[in-house]
Nucleic acid binder design. Structure first.
Lengths: 244, 244
DNA sequence: TCAATTTTTGACGACTCGTCAATAATGCAG
DNA sequence: CTGCATTATTGACGAGTCGTCAAAAATTGA
């Protein structure tokens, strides 16, 4: 597809990006209520009507922001799944990807929570919703695929009544819940939770051990594996994180 | 404290309740955006000013709703913790309380998510926030207490670097995340998650097994324990659930 | 009974969002 | 280059929102 864009089209694309950039800033600053179409227009020195040419409503802008990040997470997951190793090691790579993602997008879970809550979802366009759903189910598919590999290789046995997807749901719930709480709670320290990220990792390890997924954490040096994952799969991102 | 309320004071208290009732309805109907102070006033046939005599802002009404439920959950947890049995059985009682609560308040996690997201929190009054925080930390305290009992009785060993609170955080993340996803996702079935509640229970069991908390799920008939919990601690609520 | 106090009211200002006729810019054909 | 057709941009507008506050009504108590 060798489409050559006209100058106008390029301008429009660029403007779309600028809208999202300033919108993200406003959202971080003042949450859902801090994001205002008028203020976006003023900030970019366009009229409101022009902004509405790009997005049908405020909520669609927010969803676009979520989807931008969501897509990056999907990519992270896909790359993580290519790690060469036993299934549980590959799942560790997913875990690494997950944490990397949340550290690179510290605000993401705030925004996802906005979309999920408060009747925002209902106002978004079908298109945006479809993108979000497809990202979600791709991520689920990647993880459940690894679980199936684990079963196939004999490292893991699931009870009959439990589908791999049910196991994914547990991991999903723990990470989504954990990161959301971290993003929205001001005072975890006060209730005795000093290192929430580390706590999530620990607890996820326990889930997998609880399923008896070999090799267990006690049988294998997973921290060494994580070092390899960081180097082999996420070299650039890891560096970006350490320097930023 | 033998305070006798005047007729007026009783009226006011009653009105407060009615405000919350109609607000809850609106919130369920149309989310954050569906809740309007003008409409509350119209619905109750008072003027807006009178509503503002009860709550300083829209957000405080929402927080009051959350706190109402939150307090009930605290009570559930406290009652659950009184179950006579080994620590892990008492934790199972907490799990039962948790599920009972979410089933009795199917909308609660929607509302909690609204409060956590979208800059609502910042607008709430100090008073309401304090109540919510105190409920939260009471719940955490109850669970971490049970964990400490488990350690004390030799049923459970925690790694040195892990505080009981970190373990609580894992359970909290899984339940909060799971219930929130359930409350806000329309299409779990489509991605292969058929019985999300059951899946959460299963996964929590795995976490505890992963910590090696005796007796393990395989060594003990916890479903029989749950029957006892339902009968001995939550007889009324369980019935209400089955008939409602 | 009547003045002091409390409660209630709803018009008001300041902001939103999203629309849409009118205006400006651009593309294109002759 | 000119003049028409198409596309893009504008911002005033309607409909709602929240929260305030002087004025009106109700209640209290002496």
């Amino acid at each position: 597809m060798m489409t050559v864009l006209t100058r106008k089209q390029r301008e429009i694309q660029e403007r779309q990006q600028r809208i999202l950039t300033v919108a993200r800033e406003m959202l971080m600053q003042g949450g859902y209520l801090g994001l205002s179409m008028d203020r976006i227009a003023t900030a970019l020195e366009y009229s409101k009507g022009t902004i509405y040419q790009h997005f049908a409503c405020k909520e669609d802008i927010i969803l676009a922001l979520v989807n931008d990040s969501q897509q990056q997470r999907c990519d992270f997951f896909e790359r993580a799944a290519t790690f060469r190793g036993r299934p549980r090691e590959r799942l560790a790579a997913i875990g690494y990807a997950s944490e990397l993602f949340v550290r690179l997008h510290p605000d993401y879970f705030n925004v996802e929570q906005i979309v999920r809550a408060s009747s925002i979802w209902e106002k978004t366009s079908l298109n945006g919703r479809t993108i979000m759903r497809s990202c979600e189910s791709r991520c689920i598919g990647i993880v459940s695929g690894i679980i199936r590999d684990g079963v196939a290789q004999g490292d893991l046995t699931l009870p009959e009544e439990l589908a791999p997807e049910d196991m994914v749901f547990g991991l999903w719930a723990m990470t989504f819940g954990g990161y959301s709480i971290i993003a929205t709670s001001s005072s975890l320290e006060e209730v005795g939770i000093r290192e929430p990220f580390e706590a999530i990792n620990q607890n996820i390890t326990r889930v997998l051990d609880g399923y008896g997924w070999r090799p267990l954490a006690s049988e294998h040096d997973y921290s060494a594996v994580l070092v390899r994952i960081a180097e082999e799969i996420f070299r650039d991102e890891t560096e970006r994180l350490q320097s930023g």
